[in-house]
Amino acid sequence: MVSIKDVAQKANVSTATVSRVISKPEAVKEETSKKVLKAIQELNYQPNVLARQLRRLETKTILVIVPDITNTFFSKVLRGIESVAVSNGYKVILGDAGNDVEREEEYLNVLRQKQADGIVMLTARMETGVIEKFSVDYPLVLACEYIEGSTIPTVSIDNVSSARKATEYLIALGHEKIGTITGPLNVVLGKDRLKGYTQAMARHNLSVEPFLVQEGTFTFDSGYNMMMKFLALSNPPTAVFAANDEMAFGAVKAVKSRGLRVPEDVSVIGFDDIEFSAIFEPPLTTISQPTFEIGTKAMELLLKLMNEDEITRNQYILEDSLIERDSCTRNNA
């Protein structure tokens, strides 16, 4: 079945432009309109009139889907989304997927049933084809998590380079035996942050033994348990990169439970810079994401989709920063 995306590719325009040619031809340049109409005719594209009509029945409501509502990282992202939404007359409702892909898919019905006008997804774990197909007919923006090669508007940081930066910080402090507690490796953030770690180690000719990589679940408990595995080694790592702050907190607790000290015995660096990182003991060195800005940019993109305005860029990569605190120190061994 021919989709609006097929027409856009053939005419070399955006899907928003195709949509405007169909619904508001007077708003499109004549030359562009002719290209799109020719593509529609050649492909025998049949517009989804029902979906378009339903979209015009505004609810002035936005749905935001988070993978895990207990993860405090998402609070500032949500604030950013809501600040733009409210100023434009929209209210925000929250859907907690609970790290369940099936529940993620169920939330898409909120738009199908016309209970919201658009979706910002802070999780992207369902099958790529499902999200891609849905995004053709309904306004959808991805933030934080992402799909490689997708044309869906996306806002995030470069998680590979950020993780590489964190690992190289530990290397610059003289650490050579560095462990990592990854996120789930079936999730893009887990894979990308592991990739950044391995790139940094390879760049400095440091070996990554299998026992130096332990898979966590982005939770405090998994950070604690994986660090206990490191500490059980006869020659444990002198530093650990945890792929988020929650796991870093768990790792620090594990070190202390063994009567050891952070950073004197083991340096620990996290990722996300959630609010508790600054007041944790010791204050956590971490990678800070521009969470509020991720939220505001995602909502601005969603507004453009809902208004059928043209989006010139599909992917926005925002800058992260390394926050130095007290959980890392030089390795003098």
Score class of each variant (00 low, 15 high):
149 G>Y: 07
173 L>E: 01
162 S>P: 01
189 L>V: 03
144 C>P: 00
128 T>W: 01
205 N>P: 02
147 I>V: 14
163 A>V: 03
179 G>T: 06
169 Y>H: 15
242 A>P: 07
162 S>Q: 02
164 R>Y: 09
163 A>F: 09
197 Y>I: 08
148 E>L: 04
134 F>L: 03
189 L>T: 14
167 T>S: 12
218 F>I: 05
260 L>Y: 05
132 E>V: 05
182 T>H: 02
190 G>W: 11
131 I>L: 12
194 L>K: 13
231 L>G: 08
233 L>Y: 10
156 S>E: 03
147 I>T: 06
247 M>R: 06
229 K>P: 04
232 A>Q: 14
218 F>C: 07
190 G>T: 14
193 R>D: 00
192 D>P: 04
162 S>C: 07
196 G>P: 06
137 D>V: 01
188 V>L: 03
215 E>V: 15
130 V>P: 00
240 V>D: 09
225 N>Q: 15
207 S>D: 15
130 V>G: 01
126 M>F: 00
221 D>N: 14
170 L>P: 01
227 M>D: 12
245 D>N: 11
201 M>E: 11
191 K>I: 15
183 G>E: 10
226 M>H: 03
252 V>G: 04
156 S>M: 12
132 E>L: 05
209 E>A: 09
254 A>C: 10
250 G>Q: 06
183 G>H: 11
253 K>I: 11
128 T>P: 03
148 E>S: 01
152 I>D: 00
171 I>F: 03
186 N>T: 15
